[in-house]
């Protein structure tokens, strides 16, 4: 464990806490893409298959349980909670995430480290995580109204993966044989997808203006 990875995990945890707080306290999910939340639930469901078989550490198990619980409860809130679901923008949140899931599945069947069910599912979860933010970014472009909690959520989500890249560089430099191209490339793609959001987010923060994404 290194500081980059720990702060990455904490940033990731913060992002889901911010989102849950927003939905739970103001009972609204305006501006949040259900598609992205469903993709994240899928990411954790397919990545943490070994949660009860391969014990890594108490920290690892607790964090996995938290990510599984938060991602599925956010999806539940947005789909079934009688008040929250009313603020879900289903007309605007129309990204067909099946067109993201299928290519990721095919790619995971072709490009993986070992052709076993667990390994293919794990690789699949990496590819899905890389593109999971797309419906959310599309929704932000469309609705224009980025309330600051949603902005913070997306920012923290991007920052977590950026910190993970520093973690992989650190581990590559300090551990022999730490070479994981699939993880690195999908993590890099994921972070790059946030690049323009980061640009506009930091600019709006610096100029202290409301965050506006270009058309």
């Amino acid at each position: 464990m290194n500081i980059f990875r720990l702060s990455g995990d904490m940033t990731h945890l913060m992002s889901v806490i911010v989102l849950l707080l927003k939905i739970h306290t103001i009972k609204s999910c305006a501006g949040i893409s259900l598609k992205t939340q469903e993709l994240y639930a899928l990411v954790f469901a397919t990545r943490y298959l070994d949660i009860f078989t391969d014990f890594v550490s108490v920290y690892n198990t607790i964090m996995k349980l938290i990510f599984l619980a938060t991602s599925f409860s956010i999806v539940w809130y947005m789909r079934h909670h009688k008040i929250v679901r009313r603020s879900y923008d289903k007309e605007q949140d129309t990204f067909r995430h099946l067109f993201l899931i299928l290519p990721c599945l095919i790619l995971a069947l072709v490009v993986n480290e070992k052709f076993t069910f667990k390994e293919v599912m794990w690789t699949f979860s990496l590819y899905v995580e890389a593109v999971a933010i797309l419906p959310q970014l599309v929704l932000l472009q469309r609705t224009k109204n980025i309330d600051n909690l949603t902005g913070q959520y997306v920012f923290l989500l991007g920052a977590y993966r950026a910190l993970y890249i520093l973690n992989w560089i650190y581990r590559y430099l300090t551990e022999k044989h730490f070479v994981h191209w699939i993880t690195w490339i999908s993590g890099l793609v994921q972070t790059l997808l946030y690049a323009d959001f980061f640009y506009y987010y930091i600019n709006s923060w610096k100029n202290n203006v409301r965050l506006q994404l270009p058309a």
């Binding site: 990875r5 995990d9 990731h12 391969d54 890594v56 794990w122 581990r171 730490f178 994981h180 993880t183």
Partner: peptide, 10 residues
Amino acid sequence: QTTDSVKDEL
């Protein structure tokens, strides 16, 4: 079994 190093990540 030892988990593959990158698999100990979240």
